[in-house]
Measured scan of single mutants.
Amino acid sequence: MGFKLLSKLLVYLTASIMAIASPLAFSVDSSGEYPTVSEIPVGEVRLYQIADGVWSHIATQSFDGAVYPSNGLIVRDGDELLLIDTAWGAKNTAALLAEIEKQIGLPVTRAVSTHFHDDRVGGVDVLRAAGVATYASPSTRRLAEVEGNEIPTHSLEGLSSSGDAVRFGPVELFYPGAAHSTDNLIVYVPSASVLYGGCAIYELSRTSAGNVADADLAEWPTSIERIQQHYPEAQFVIPGHGLPGGLDLLKHTTNVVKAHTNRSVVE
């Protein structure tokens, strides 16, 4: 069995187990497998329904001669939608809004960016022009300005110390501490036991640490421990890039980060 097929099978099995364990909360999309990078042309966006009122959005972007996937989250909030992270750029984010209108038909009224990198804030200006209120932590807003990236308009308070959590509509926002970046936030959907790890969490097929220019490698494993301790009931975990899975993604990420750190020390 090929690795790609095995990865998709694991996603399907995880979703099936969740649907059985929580039949009222989960209505997993039966329309197909989780979209992969090879299936999404740059400039297009796919939506994948995880649970009743919960979707991931998947886009792709060219970077350094390669094409990478990027995940975000959409959560229903009454007759409105909360968006977590842009679709990595203005063109993708405009396509995301169009796809949401086509498939869901509810307005996106608020959006949260989970850290300051372009795959999370690139497209904020498109959201703002569409009347979406954009939010991020003060740290993310400051770092985005320093980096020359787009800056969300509103500040999220109460997320300055490791372990801080605040309720934001249908989700809980959690600051686990520094990891992929010093400002990275985690998003949890309690009604569906869905954990969105953003770039602080890796997919299972990833074996290298990737972009760690703004990471705190020493603190990252401790931050992941905080996530595990705060959300032990999480059933569906979405990484910032690639295929979702279960809580095993947290341990896998820790292993990859520690291996990278150990290699760096040896070198």
Rank of each mutant, 00 (worst) to 15 (best):
M18S: 14
S31K: 10
Y188W: 14
G163Y: 05
E225H: 10
D214G: 11
I151D: 05
K4D: 11
Q61P: 05
V112F: 07
K8C: 15
T86S: 04
R142S: 13
K102W: 10
Q228D: 07
D85C: 00
E147A: 14
D183R: 01
Y135V: 00
V28Y: 13
F26A: 12
K102G: 11
L185E: 01
E39A: 14
D214I: 04
E33T: 09
G131K: 09
E101Y: 11
G242N: 04
L250K: 01
Y188E: 00
H180I: 01
N71L: 01
A129E: 13
P23A: 12
L143R: 08
G163P: 02
P176E: 00
D119Q: 00
A129K: 12
A179Q: 02
S205C: 04
I20G: 15
I151L: 08
S139V: 13
S191T: 13
K251W: 11
A51Q: 08
L143F: 09
S22V: 13
P69W: 15
I186Q: 02
T253Y: 03
Y231E: 01
V54D: 04
T222E: 12
N149C: 06
Y196N: 03
E33W: 10
F63R: 08
E150K: 06
S191D: 12
V187G: 02
R206E: 07
A21Q: 14
A59Y: 05
L106M: 14
D119W: 00
S264M: 12
P107I: 08
E157Y: 11
L243S: 15
A66F: 15
S139C: 05
D118C: 05
A21F: 14
V108H: 01
I201R: 02
I84S: 03
R141F: 02
L106Y: 10
L9Y: 14
P138I: 09
H180N: 04
L9T: 14
I17L: 10
S38A: 11
A15I: 14
S193Q: 14
L185H: 02
A59F: 04
V108N: 03
S38M: 13
L47Q: 03
R142C: 06
S193H: 12
S162T: 11
I84Q: 00
T134I: 02
G163A: 06
F63H: 09
T114S: 06
H260Q: 12
F63W: 08
A192F: 07
P152L: 03
I40P: 09
Y196M: 04
E33I: 10
V132E: 03
Q61W: 07
T134Q: 00
I58T: 15
P152I: 04
I74C: 03
P152Q: 00
T93E: 00
L47P: 08
Y48H: 12
H57R: 04
F3M: 14
A25V: 13
A234Q: 01
V189W: 01
V121F: 04
Y202I: 15
G240Y: 02
P232G: 11
S208A: 11
T261M: 13
T253G: 00
E157M: 12
P232K: 13
V54W: 02
V45T: 06
G2W: 09
A59I: 11
G122P: 05
N262D: 13
A15S: 14
H230L: 08
C199L: 02
G240N: 05
D125Y: 09
L247W: 15
A213H: 11
A209N: 12
S56Q: 15
V257D: 02
H260Y: 09
D216G: 05
R128E: 13
G177N: 02
A179P: 04
E44K: 12
I186A: 07
N71P: 00
R263H: 12
S38I: 08
F174Q: 00
I104L: 07
E267S: 06
D77H: 07
V146Y: 13
S30A: 14
G123H: 03
V11F: 10
A59T: 10
A133K: 15
P138W: 08
A66C: 07
E157G: 12
C199W: 05
